[in-house]
Each structure stands twice: as structure tokens, then as C-alpha cells.
Computed example of a mutant assay.
Amino acid sequence: MYERIKLLRTEQLHMTQTEFGEALGVKRDVINNIENNRLKNPEKQEPIYRLMCEKFNVSEEWLRTGEGEMFLPLTKNQLITEFAADLVMEDNTFKKRLFEALAKLNESEWEVLEKLADSLIKKD
């Protein structure tokens, strides 16, 4: 499991031990000890393992056994939230300009847009 935690931190999240520890509310030394399998009482770290899964949307089965996918599928709300967070960080891209324009639409303009989208879908 300790190897999978390091893989998650370095290859997927691109975080230092310090950053990873801060995200979980522990010191870098705790993460270092976990990743190097130097825990005297690994069972006491159960809350940290559960928090890793919750905070980073990691499959607990994968974390514990290596079976299955590393990450759980995102809900629609999670996908939208991640997309919006990424947009905030972008400069003047088409995606950002498009969503700024969408944010300014009133209800009747949304209805027109919905009809347009419906007609495009029916053409396929």
C-alpha cells in the first residue's frame, strides 16, 4: 500500500510530501514514514488512509489491494466543479470566453440555446 500512496502522490497528484501532508492535516514526516513503510502501528493510520480516499477521490480497494481503478468515477457535479476550477486558472481562452458569455445569458436566452442544442442533436 505504501508504494501505491507514493505513486498517487508523485505521479497523479504531483505533490511534495509536505503538500500532501498539509492537504491531509499531517506533517511531512508522517507521509515519509507511510511511504517508506516505517510505521510502528499502521492500524493507527486508518483515518489518514480513509481521508486520502475521500479527499482525492481514490478507490479504497485500489489503495489497499491494488485492484481496480485508482480513482472513483466523478459525479456530474464533481466534473462541473473541476471544469470550472480549471477555467478560473486559464487566461483568455475560447473555453473561458464561452463560459463567461453563457454566465451572462438570461432565462429566455437559455431557452433559445436549449432549442438550438435540441435541433442539433436531432440532426444526428
Rank of each mutant, 00 (worst) to 15 (best):
Y2K: 03
E3R: 09
R4W: 06
R4K: 08
I5K: 06
I5L: 04
K6Y: 14
L7M: 10
L8Q: 09
L8A: 09
R9H: 08
E11R: 00
E11K: 09
E11P: 08
E11I: 05
E11T: 00
L13Q: 00
H14G: 05
H14V: 08
M15T: 02
T16A: 14
Q17E: 13
Q17Y: 12
T18D: 14
T18G: 12
E19N: 10
F20W: 06
F20Q: 09
F20D: 09
E22C: 05
E22Y: 03
A23P: 07
A23Y: 09
A23D: 07
A23L: 07
L24K: 06
L24E: 06
L24F: 02
G25K: 04
V26F: 11
K27H: 13
K27L: 00
K27Q: 10
R28E: 15
D29A: 04
V30N: 06
V30G: 05
V30P: 07
V30K: 08
I31F: 04
N32A: 10
N33S: 07
I34N: 01
I34A: 00
E35L: 01
E35Y: 06
R38H: 13
L39E: 11
K40R: 12
N41W: 05
E43V: 15
K44M: 10
Q45N: 11
E46T: 14
E46F: 14
E46M: 09
P47I: 10
P47G: 04
Y49G: 01
R50E: 14
R50G: 05
L51M: 02
L51N: 07
L51C: 08
M52L: 08
M52R: 00
M52F: 04
C53K: 03
E54L: 04
F56D: 06
V58F: 04
S59D: 08
S59L: 01
E60M: 01
E60C: 00
E60K: 00
E61A: 03
W62Q: 07
L63S: 05
L63N: 04
R64M: 10
G66R: 03
G66E: 12
E67P: 05
G68D: 14
F71E: 12
F71I: 08
L72Y: 09
L72P: 08
T75K: 06
N77E: 11
Q78C: 11
I80P: 06
T81E: 14
T81F: 10
A84S: 13
A84C: 13
A85D: 15
A85N: 13
A85K: 13
L87M: 02
E90D: 10
D91R: 10
N92W: 02
F94G: 05
F94Y: 07
K95M: 04
K96F: 01
K96P: 03
L98M: 12
F99P: 02
F99G: 01
A101E: 05
L102F: 11
K104N: 01
L105T: 04
N106Y: 08
E107S: 10
E107W: 04
E107G: 07
E107T: 05
E109Y: 02
E109A: 02
E109P: 00
V112I: 09
V112T: 10
V112E: 08
L113F: 04
L113A: 07
K115D: 12
K115T: 10
L116V: 13
L116P: 01
A117L: 15
D118A: 11
L120M: 15
L120K: 11
L120R: 10
K122H: 07
K123E: 14
K123C: 07
D124I: 12
